[in-house]
């Protein structure tokens, strides 16, 4: 009985599916953007480690500090970094006093202790990086209705994040293909999903002056700020890998011991 009912149900499902499969398809409208859109270009950072496998790679502290400088002097005008507190910047190699000074240089929203009116005060190390706009409406109003995303998680929030950000930042020089119209107020960038991005070209050569004398080319600044943003997305990365290596070594030995135990227990037993 079950078999007959099942047989019938199976036939109906199969026919319904095959009818669908045999139906002629409307000719697919080709999406012109798909042809222009480019996937991120290959690039490698120190934290990617030897062979790019990322097992032993650690952040380059000097690069993180340069990247932070690029973020602070260029990106932070429009993009927030709300999940990073000033105290976290110690991980970039800044001393406690430097962190305090960095915090003090930024104002964070507060209440006036006398009047209770909204006001600002210099940030403390425990404060988070203040957002450039008080809310989304203000952000859109200031940016031609585009919303500059918060960058704290940007590397994890995009496929192939580091390469994507780097390609995007350096992808403004590509020529607009023949016959492709870019809406007024948008900019052509083939690495952006719609190839028309609201953000104007953010980096130009020598835009920042690096304290360590590194030449500030667009490519250099882009690599640096991407490294910094990777740290912002994954501050636990180095510790994670250290513990990971130790864990795998430990489990490797344990597996060998478990195997020897198994052999010993089963010695002489046919199976």
């Amino acid at each position: 009985m079950v078999r007959f009912l099942g047989f019938g149900a199976g036939l109906i499902f199969v026919i319904a599916l095959l009818v669908g499969a045999l139906m002629p398809r409307e000719a697919a409208v080709e999406d012109p953007i798909k042809k222009i859109h480019l996937y991120p270009e290959a690039a490698r950072w120190q934290q990617d480690g030897p062979l790019g496998m990322g097992v032993f790679g650690t952040y380059d502290r000097a690069q993180l500090q340069r990247g932070f400088q690029v973020y602070k002097e260029v990106c932070s005008a429009c993009h927030g970094l709300e999940r990073i507190a000033f105290r976290n910047l110690g991980a970039l190699g800044f001393s406690e006093a430097e962190v305090k000074a960095l915090a003090k240089a930024r104002e964070v929203p507060s209440l006036d202790p006398q009047t209770g009116e909204p006001s600002t005060r210099p940030a403390l190390p425990s404060d988070h990086w203040p957002s450039p706009y008080p809310n989304e409406v203000a952000a859109r109003a200031a940016n031609n209705n585009a919303l500059p995303p918060d960058l704290s998680l940007i590397i994890k929030a995009r496929p192939d994040g580091k390469r994507y950000v780097h390609s995007l930042l350096t992808g403004y020089d590509k020529p607009v293909p023949q016959g492709f119209e870019i809406t007024e107020g948008l900019h052509f960038n083939p690495y952006f999903h719609s190839v028309a991005i609201a953000m104007a070209r953010p980096l130009n050569d020598e835009q920042v002056t690096y304290a360590d004398g590194t030449k500030a080319t667009v490519d250099q600044m882009s690599m640096d700020v991407t490294a910094f943003l990777h740290w912002a997305s994954e501050p636990e990365l180095e510790r994670r890998r250290q513990i990971g290596v130790a864990t795998l070594i430990f489990l490797g030995i344990l597996t060998v011991l478990a195997w020897l135990t198994y052999r010993k227990v089963w010695a002489g037993v046919a199976h």
Binding site: F250, L251, L254, L257, L260, K264
Partner: peptide
């Protein structure tokens, strides 16, 4: 030898 392997495995698993 059997004892050694059992003890070593047990001790290692305990540490883990």
């Amino acid at each position: 030898r059997r004892d050694f392997i059992y003890v070593a495995t047990g001790a290692f698993a305990g540490v883990g």
